[in-house]
Amino acid sequence: MDRTFVMVKPDGVARGLVGDIVSRFESKGLKLVAAKLEKLPEKRVREQYQEHLEKPFYPSLQHYITSGPCFLMVWEGRNVVKVARAIIGATNPAEAAAGTIRGDLAMDIGRNVVHGSDSPESAKREIGIHFAGTELVAYKRIDEPVLYE
């Protein structure tokens, strides 16, 4: 099975949306294999958003991500990066479809509730930034036989 990284950002945590967000991934049939709530240190934020370090919006992004706790998760499933991105919705909530996390729960691109890896390569890198291998738990969901052919 494939893995991806998903993070509920400080606005999602502050608004009490963690349970709703986790429920959407679980209801789809994805398996939660790691999770933790923490206030991210600036070093890991820089690693997480390395492609944006030189962009004018980065200081604001860093301030926002370090402003409160984030809920970090690793999800597992077939084609999980693509599936998770569909559940999350477009980066700009104004363009996100109804039924997606951002389409239902966010109003502004600067407070779009959740981050999800955009490729399998990014997922591997982001998981490595935030989780030690020993923090990922292997188990079987009871409904796996009816989720996949």
Results as ranks from 00 to 15, higher is better:
residue 113 V to A: 03
residue 46 R to N: 08
residue 108 D to E: 14
residue 88 I to L: 03
residue 69 P to L: 00
residue 72 L to A: 08
residue 107 M to L: 14
residue 30 L to E: 13
residue 86 A to R: 14
residue 136 L to W: 11
residue 127 I to C: 06
residue 50 Q to F: 10
residue 29 G to D: 03
residue 103 G to H: 06
residue 65 I to S: 00
residue 141 R to F: 04
residue 51 E to Q: 12
residue 10 P to F: 07
residue 90 A to N: 14
residue 119 S to V: 06
residue 136 L to D: 11
residue 96 A to G: 05
residue 113 V to Y: 00
residue 29 G to R: 02
residue 20 D to H: 13
residue 22 V to L: 15
residue 115 H to P: 06
residue 1 M to V: 11
residue 146 V to F: 12
residue 52 H to R: 04
residue 124 K to R: 15
residue 125 R to N: 01
residue 129 I to K: 03
residue 109 I to D: 05
residue 131 F to P: 02
residue 20 D to L: 14
residue 141 R to H: 02
residue 138 A to Y: 11
residue 117 S to D: 12
residue 20 D to F: 11
residue 11 D to M: 08
residue 19 G to R: 15
residue 80 V to K: 01
residue 100 T to E: 05
residue 12 G to R: 06
residue 4 T to E: 12
residue 57 F to A: 10
residue 36 K to I: 04
residue 86 A to D: 14
residue 47 E to S: 13
residue 9 K to I: 05
residue 58 Y to K: 01
residue 84 A to T: 10
residue 64 Y to A: 01
residue 133 G to H: 10
residue 59 P to W: 11
residue 135 E to K: 03
residue 120 P to M: 07
residue 76 E to P: 01
residue 74 V to F: 10
residue 133 G to Y: 01
residue 77 G to K: 03
residue 93 P to K: 07
residue 143 D to S: 14
residue 60 S to I: 12
residue 39 K to D: 02
residue 28 K to Q: 15
residue 75 W to F: 09
residue 145 P to W: 07
residue 5 F to A: 07
residue 87 I to G: 01
residue 86 A to F: 05
residue 29 G to A: 11
residue 118 D to N: 13
residue 93 P to I: 05
residue 77 G to H: 05
residue 59 P to R: 07
residue 43 K to A: 14
residue 42 E to F: 03
residue 100 T to A: 07
residue 26 E to Q: 12
residue 73 M to H: 10
residue 141 R to Y: 05
residue 91 T to P: 06
residue 42 E to I: 14
residue 122 S to D: 13
residue 39 K to N: 13
residue 117 S to L: 11
residue 46 R to S: 06
residue 86 A to H: 11
residue 105 L to V: 03
residue 140 K to S: 15
residue 103 G to M: 04
residue 110 G to I: 03
residue 61 L to Q: 02
residue 48 Q to H: 15
residue 131 F to K: 00
residue 81 V to T: 06
residue 93 P to V: 03
residue 49 Y to D: 04
residue 13 V to P: 10
residue 149 E to N: 09
residue 54 E to I: 04
residue 102 R to S: 09
residue 66 T to G: 02
residue 69 P to H: 04
residue 9 K to F: 01
residue 109 I to G: 08
residue 85 R to H: 06
residue 43 K to C: 00
residue 60 S to V: 13
residue 30 L to N: 10
residue 132 A to F: 12
residue 107 M to E: 15
residue 10 P to W: 01
residue 15 R to N: 14
residue 99 G to H: 10
residue 120 P to G: 13
residue 90 A to K: 13
residue 18 V to E: 12
residue 8 V to W: 00
residue 144 E to I: 02
residue 40 L to N: 03
residue 115 H to F: 02
residue 9 K to S: 10
residue 71 F to I: 00
residue 1 M to I: 05
residue 32 L to V: 06
residue 131 F to M: 00
residue 75 W to R: 05
residue 137 V to H: 09
residue 62 Q to M: 15
residue 149 E to A: 13
residue 117 S to K: 06
residue 115 H to M: 08
residue 137 V to M: 09
residue 88 I to N: 02
residue 29 G to Q: 09
residue 126 E to R: 10
residue 128 G to Y: 07
residue 58 Y to I: 11
residue 93 P to C: 06
residue 129 I to C: 00
residue 113 V to F: 00
residue 89 G to N: 09
residue 57 F to I: 10
residue 32 L to R: 10
residue 45 V to F: 05
residue 33 V to Y: 08
residue 31 K to W: 03
residue 44 R to K: 14
